[in-house]
Amino acid sequence: MATKQNNSGLVQILDRAAMKRTIDRMAAEIVERDGGDVVLVGIHTRGVPLAERLARVIEASAGQKVRSGRLDITLYRDDVGPWRPAHEQPLLKETFLPDSIDGEVLYLVDDVLFTGRTVRAALDTLMDYGRPRAVRLAVLVDRGHRELPVAADVVGRKVPTSRDEDIRVRFAEIDGVDGVWIGRETADVE
């Protein structure tokens, strides 16, 4: 068979407008909880555009500059090293944080909360950069199936899934389109 069946089996659960509404609500929750003086740190890859969008919304509503950053957790992942196939290490990406994070209220931002392992690695990464006053977690989608005792403080949408289902979050900045999809993506058949 030579046909490519992209995205077949995926069902859209958030479109562009719904995604915007969700992000606006998340921003409001953050402000309600901690005011506008927070640092938003996106976890690579799709936590980064989410953190930037949240920052823009908060800036608009709170009228003050919101600091944001980018975090690469690769060096702290628990699946790097001998658990990986030979010589296929993930590429390192840039980590950018404000000069000091000591004493700050810092939101880790990611697109999907799943096993909790990414958050564990992100917390370890952050702690090597400084000692924030508080670290909170904001995610667009919580799909369940935690493997570590991790919970999000701000959740855009809770989506019950089965373990082998995929959640696809897409951002225009990276993927050219906004939206969230669920389902089993059929592998490309070639």
């Binding site: 690469d72 060096l75 702290y76 790097v80 090293g81 001998p82 590429l91 390192l92 990406k93 840039e94 980590t95 370890d124 702690m127 090597d128 950069y129 400084g130």
Partner: peptide, 27 residues
């Protein structure tokens, strides 16, 4: 190119308060 790009990201570790990452623990 890959080695140089990877080094670029690792340079940062020397500027952090804790100049150590756990990547090769146990190796």
């Amino acid at each position: 190119q890959l080695i140089l790009d990877t080094a670029e990201e690792l340079l940062d570790i020397a500027r952090r308060p804790i100049k150590k990452v756990p990547t090769l623990r146990g190796r």
